[in-house]
């Protein structure tokens, strides 16, 4: 059973639709016991970093997620903001601690104002990097495949883990895997066929 974690500000519906389409068994919940009993966790993301962390704390879920993922090695997939929340800290709306499963800081795009590049980074962009073939949720997905992004912040991390990148002004981390911990900065659930493949790879992943 997959648990989609409801952090109060997310668009859960699009993740739900993707799971229905894949025929997966899942529940959407903000309760500890459903996180504890799940086989896989999905942390979706539309929302602001500070506000969403506040909700997760109020629901008492932060410690619970840490325990399930770090100690019991439960697979987790963070999507967009959900991926950002997996890092140590975020700078959106002041400095806030994240769930802290992976070392790193979530920073605003730092783009040269002279360039004709705009923030948020919105639209379809492709993934790059030699480790694409090693990241287990990117199975059967090629370098250069486009996915849908909407974000103004991205993770910066020196953590030793497998990473794929996307270029927007410079290369930033768009997918990572650290053991049982996965994140995508883009929205697989909004990225049509190739996106659904990622969710399928995640739910069939066994640690």
């Amino acid at each position: 059973m997959i648990t989609v974690i409801n952090c109060g500000t997310s668009n859960l519906r699009s993740v739900e639709k993707a799971l229905v389409k894949l025929g997966a068994e899942f529940i959407v919940s903000d309760k500890k016991e459903d996180i504890e009993s799940a086989s896989h966790l999905i942390l979706p993301g539309v929302g602001a970093f500070g506000e969403t962390m506040k909700n997760l704390h109020n629901l008492g879920l932060v410690e619970c997620i840490r325990k399930e993922v770090l100690e019991k090695k439960k697979p987790i997939l963070g999507i967009c903001l959900g991926m950002q929340l997996l890092f140590s800290t975020g700078e959106e709306g002041g400095i806030n601690n994240g769930i802290g499963l992976v070392r790193g800081v979530v920073k605003k795009f730092d783009l040269n104002p002279g360039k004709r590049i705009k923030i948020p980074h919105i639209g379809w962009n492709d993934i790059l990097g030699d480790e694409i073939r090693d990241i287990e949720i990117l199975k059967e997905i090629n370098e250069g495949t486009n996915f849908y992004f909407v974000h103004s912040y991205h993770a910066v991390s020196d953590e030793k883990m497998k990473k794929a990148f996307t270029n927007y002004g410079y290369d930033f981390i768009s997918v990572f895997q650290k053991g049982n911990i996965f994140g995508t900065q883009f929205h697989p659930e909004k990225s049509q066929t190739e996106g659904l493949k990622i969710i399928k790879n995640f739910i069939s992943y066994n640690a």
Binding site: T9, V46, G47, A48, E51, L81, E92, G93, P120, I122, V150, H151, S152
Partner: peptide, 9 residues
């Protein structure tokens, strides 16, 4: 809305 869901929303 920006505060709750972020600018991109």
């Amino acid at each position: 809305i920006v505060k709750k869901y972020g600018s991109q929303a």
